[in-house]
């Protein structure tokens, strides 16, 4: 508490070793076996966000190689890398690097692998074969059905279940106590409900609520609302109230102040439409979602975000007028 530096609690309280992972007992047992045998096949970790897939992969590697494990691990993220060619180059380079003492392979962690196209996955499969003598892949995915069969059949499959309520609340309690944060028990349960078993989200909510003071059910809801820029809601309200020009000014401010892209803003709008802060007739929510989807698709096609969203606001202005 007296330290000058702080980090996000999701980083600070991440389990470093398989032993520290409290939930997912079956998975931990099987993984620990690989560590004991100092050998493993390619692995596929699947399951919803925030259930510990990436954490387990890193913990496994640390248990295998020790604290300086990162030199024997190549971390790739399919959503951040620019295409399979970049991945191929990095894998090639990494396969040539120094091998760890006593263990005949290095590990490549490929996160969000289900974001790869099936063509890219075919190329990935060839890579896995080509370098199988010196490397093992840990593929991480939310939706295993999006991983092509030839890859699935080459991997040991691990399904991560959504975390149980007790597990999440217990962990939140541990963190809160350790950080000297005051809290209501109900608040921790509320955090679990909102985060739907996603530990990363739960811890982020806890830390943000703690920044406001005592963690209460109210402060939890408040902070979840804050995490969506209020301005998006205000912009929608202004448009629905017929204030097109004001809404348009807000749109530009949001883009500049938060650095959000058109697609980011579309996502925020989508959340607001089905949130409870924005009051409107229920059938209107459906209409808006429909039109928003069209705008979203145009943005994906490469159309100009400023013009598309401005048109969306002009449409909302008319919609709001008809409703009133």
């Amino acid at each position: 508490m007296s330290s000058a530096f702080d980090v996000l609690w999701v980083e600070k309280y991440r389990p470093r070793s398989l032993k520290e992972i409290v939930n997912q007992e079956d998975i931990v047992k099987r993984l620990t076996k690989f560590v004991e045998e100092r050998n493993m096949p390619h692995l596929l970790f699947a399951g919803p966000a925030g259930t510990g897939k990436t954490t387990a992969a890193h913990a496994l590697a640390r248990d295998l190689y020790g604290d300086s494990y990162r030199q024997f691990v190549l971390e790739l993220n399919a959503s951040d890398e620019r295409g399979i060619n970049v991945i191929r180059e990095k894998v090639k380079e990494f396969a040539r690097s120094r091998t760890p003492p006593g263990i005949p392979f290095k590990i490549i962690i490929l996160d969000e692998a289900d974001n790869m196209t099936s063509d890219a996955q075919q190329a990935l499969r060839r890579l896995m074969e080509l370098y199988s003598a010196s490397t093992r892949f840990i593929l991480i995915a939310n939706y295993p059905s999006k991983i092509i069969d030839p890859i699935q059949s080459r991997c040991a499959f691990f399904r991560f279940q959504p975390l149980r309520k007790e597990d999440v609340v217990e962990r939140l309690r541990f963190i809160a106590d350790n950080e000297g944060v005051e809290y209501e028990d109900d608040a921790l349960e509320t955090i679990y409900e909102i985060s739907e078993g996603d530990m990363r989200k739960a811890i982020n909510i806890l830390q943000s609520a703690a920044a406001l003071g005592r963690v209460t059910v109210d402060s939890v809801f408040k902070v979840v609302g804050m995490a969506r820029p209020r301005e998006v809601r205000d912009m929608l309200k202004a448009a629905l109230d017929g204030e097109f020009e004001a809404a348009r000014t807000m749109l530009r401010r949001i883009m500049i102040e938060y650095g959000l892209s058109g697609e980011d803003i579309v996502r925020q709008i989508h959340k607001e439409i089905f949130g409870n802060e924005l009051k409107m007739p229920e059938e209107q929510r459906v209409l808006i979602a429909d039109y928003l989807g069209e705008i979203h698709y145009r943005l994906v096609e490469g159309s100009d975000d400023d013009i598309q969203l401005t048109a969306f606001l002009a449409w909302l202005t008319v919609l709001g007028r008809h409703a009133s």
């Binding site: 996000l8 980083e11 990436t54 971390e75 959503s79 951040d80």
Partner: peptide, 9 residues
């Protein structure tokens, strides 16, 4: 890099 998640996440 520190939180071990993609930039998108």
């Amino acid at each position: 890099e520190r939180i071990l998640a993609s930039k998108a996440t």
